[in-house]
Simulated assay, not measured.
Amino acid sequence: MNSPASDPAPLLECRGLCFSRNEEPIFGPLDFTLAAGTAIQVLGGNGAGKTTLLRVLAGLLPASQGEVHFQGRSVDQQHLVQGTAFLGHLPGHKADLSALENLQFTAALHASALAPEAALTDVGLAGFEQQQARRLSAGQNKRLALARLRLSAAPLWLLDEPYANLDRDGIALVNRQIGDHVNAGGAVLLTTHGAYAPPPVPMHTLELRA
């Protein structure tokens, strides 16, 4: 008789995760898991460490204590960088390059099967291919950053205030992209301020307290 298959390891598992700055605790210890095909909304007031948590998970800051397991393996900062896509408060692309040039660079870096032009169309920036990123509005720059996400092969998206600077259509765009990514087997951690309708995906919450 064949033994039943064990449950797959979660995409992300954090054990006793802490971060301190100048010996002042910012968050933790945190214990949580994130399975493929699901999302977590990180809640908490100003100063609770929401952005810091996402930056730690993106490999941009070292954790003070704890372990991070990614796809069933204990990982360091370098492996987190390789497995995650981070969308922060800043757009993260080159201001002097055109919208298309920024996406061409991302597509080449990740060997994306999606054409950069198609990614621009998907986020409502068709016709802005040759516009320098510095000449785009705040909302258009956010859309360009969302297009870069579409070209990333990372299974884990870390989205810090993804609805900021977007109108109603832009908010709906974020929810569609999250839905597509989660439904394709990816996972998302996101922070939000304000009363936004959550994307229609399996969603859990993680509350941080200042």
Rank of each mutant, 00 (worst) to 15 (best):
G72L: 01
S74F: 11
V75G: 08
V75N: 13
V75H: 11
D76C: 07
D76K: 02
Q77N: 11
H79A: 14
H79E: 15
L80R: 14
L80G: 10
V81I: 15
V81T: 11
T84P: 09
T84M: 06
A85F: 13
A85K: 09
F86R: 01
F86T: 12
F86Y: 11
L87Y: 09
L87R: 07
L87T: 03
L87C: 10
H89K: 01
P91L: 05
G92N: 15
G92H: 15
H93M: 13
K94L: 13
A95V: 15
A95M: 12
A95I: 15
D96H: 14
A99E: 10
A99M: 04
A99I: 02
A99V: 02
L100P: 04
L100G: 02
E101P: 11
E101Q: 06
L103E: 04
Q104R: 11
Q104K: 07
F105Y: 12
F105G: 04
T106W: 02
A108K: 07
H110Q: 12
H110G: 07
H110F: 14
A111G: 10
A111E: 14
A111Q: 14
A111H: 14
P116W: 06
P116C: 01
E117R: 12
E117Y: 05
E117A: 09
A119G: 06
A119Y: 00
L120Q: 03
T121H: 02
V123L: 04
V123M: 04
G124S: 01
L125M: 01
A126K: 05
A126G: 08
G127D: 03
G127R: 05
G127T: 01
G127K: 04
F128T: 01
F128N: 07
F128I: 00
Q130M: 05
Q131M: 10
Q131I: 04
Q132G: 04
A133S: 05
A133Q: 05
A133T: 11
R134I: 00
R134C: 01
R134F: 00
R134S: 06
R135W: 14
R135E: 14
R135P: 14
S137F: 02
A138D: 13
A138T: 06
